[in-house]
C-alpha cells in the first residue's frame, strides 16, 4: 500500500512538472516571441550542448512532426526543416540563420542514429574464413602490424605474437564480429607507428622501468603485458557500448560538423586504444588478471569525461589529422 501511494505521488509529480514546463514554455514564447528551438539556437553555442538540447526538445515535443524529425532519412532533412519552420510560423527571411543551425543539428542527430545502425550491422556479421574479403583483411592486419615478418601460414602460432589467443584468430572475433577486425585494421593501417608502438609495449610494457638484468629475471616469472588483439576486441566492445548508450554523442556532436561516419567511430577506437594503453601503464597492474578491473576503471573515467558537454575525445595523432573543426 505504502509502495503504491509513493508510486502514485511520483506519477502525479511527473505530470505536474510536465504541465509546469509546458506553461513555462508558453510564457517564454509570449515574452520573447521565439519558440523553444529558436531560443536554444540563439542562446547556446554550436556543438554538443546545442545539438543535445535540440534533440531533447524535438523528442519531447507534442507535435508528431517534431517527434519523428529525429529519425527521418538524411535526404529528407531539408524538407523537414521547412515544415518545422512553417509549423512554428517562423519566417525564414527574418531568421536566415535558424534554418541553417537547425539543419546542422538535425544532420548530426540523424547521422548518429544511422551510425549506430551501421556499426551494429558490422558487429552482427561474423568472421567467415570462407569469405575471401574477410581473409584478405585479416592478412592485411598482420602485414601492417608486422611489416618485416612474413606470416608463415594462415593457421600459425605466429598470431599469438600480435595478441590473438590461438593459432587461428577467427574464433576470437566472437561477439564483436567484423567490427573488431575493421577497428584493428584501421588502427594498424592509419596509425601504423602508434599501433606498432602499442603492440611492442604490450609485449613488455614495463621494460623501461627495469635494468636489463632485472627485466630478464622478471620475465622469467611471468608475462606482464597484455594481448594486443584481444584487448583491441575488448576496447571495440567498450567503444560499441559507449556509442549505443549515447555517451559518445558529446564527442561526435563536437567533432563532426555533419553526420558522424564509420571512420569517425574508428578514430574514436584508435583514441581509446591509445588512452587505454597509457592508462594501463599508469595503473601499473600486477598482471593480466587485473585486466577487467582496469578496464572498468577506464570506462568510468571516459564516461565521466563525456559528461562534460564541451568534451571531445580529442584525437591527437596521425589518424585524425585535419578532422577537428568547429
Amino acid at each position: 500500500m505504502k509502495h503504491f501511494l509513493r508510486m502514485l505521488i511520483q506519477v502525479c509529480l511527473y505530470f505536474y512538472c510536465k504541465f509546469l514546463w509546458r506553461c513555462l514554455k508558453f510564457v517564454m514564447r509570449k515574452l520573447t516571441g521565439r519558440c523553444e528551438l529558436q531560443r536554444i539556437c540563439y542562446n547556446t553555442k554550436p556543438g554538443a550542448s546545442r545539438t543535445m538540447k535540440i534533440e531533447t526538445s524535438l523528442r519531447d515535443s507534442k507535435s508528431k512532426l517534431l517527434q519523428t524529425s529525429v529519425s527521418v532519412h538524411p535526404d529528407a532533412i531539408e524538407k523537414t526543416i521547412e515544415d518545422i519552420m512553417e509549423l512554428k510560423k517562423i519566417n525564414p527571411d527574418v531568421n536566415p540563420q535558424l534554418g541553417i543551425s537547425l539543419q546542422a543539428c538535425l544532420l548530426q542527430i540523424v547521422g548518429y542514429r544511422n551510425l549506430i545502425a551501421d556499426v551494429e550491422k558490422l558487429r552482427r556479421e561474423p568472421y567467415d574464413s570462407d569469405n575471401p574479403q574477410h581473409e584478405e583483411m585479416l592478412l592485411k592486419l598482420w602485414k601492417f602490424l608486422k611489416p618485416n615478418t612474413p606470416l608463415e601460414s594462415r593457421i600459425s602460432k605466429q598470431w599469438c605474437e600480435i595478441g590473438f589467443q590461438g593459432d587461428d584468430p577467427k574464433t576470437d572475433f566472437r561477439g564483436m564480429g567484423l567490427l573488431g577486425l575493421y577497428n584493428l585494421q584501421y588502427f594498424a593501417e592509419r596509425d601504423a607507428t602508434a599501433a606498432q608502438q602499442v603492440l611492442s609495449d604490450s609485449l613488455h610494457p614495463k621494460c623501461s622501468k627495469f635494468s636489463k638484468a632485472e627485466w630478464e629475471k622478471k620475465r622469467m616469472d611471468k608475462a606482464i603485458g597484455y594481448s594486443f588483439a584481444i584487448v583491441g576486441i575488448n576496447i571495440t566492445d567498450l567503444a560499441y557500448n559507449l556509442l549505443v548508450s549515447g555517451a559518445l554523442k558529446t564527442h561526435f556532436y563536437n567533432i563532426a560538423p555533419e553526420a558522424p561516419t564509420l571512420s569517425h567511430f574508428q578514430q574514436t577506437f584508435c583514441y581509446l586504444m591509445h588512452e587505454f594503453h597509457k592508462f594501463w601503464i599508469e595503473e601499473d597492474p600486477m598482471d593480466i588478471m587485473e585486466f577487467n578491473r582496469v578496464r572498468e576503471k577506464f570506462r568510468k573515467r571516459i564516461i565521466k569525461q563525456l559528461q562534460n558537454p564541451d568534451m571531445a575525445l580529442c584525437p591527437h595523432f596521425a589518424a585524425s589529422e585535419g578532422l577537428i573543426n568547429m
Partner: peptide, 26 residues
C-alpha cells in the same frame, strides 16, 4: 580458449550472450 566459459557464465546469470569478447583475466 573459445570453449564457451564466459557464455556459460552469462547464461547462468541470465544475461545477454550476444556481445561476448575473449576474456582477458577473469
Amino acid at each position: 580458449d573459445n570453449a564457451g566459459k564466459t557464455t556459460l557464465l552469462k547464461q547462468l546469470a541470465s544475461e545477454d550472450i550476444s556481445h561476448i569478447t575473449p576474456t582477458q583475466g577473469f
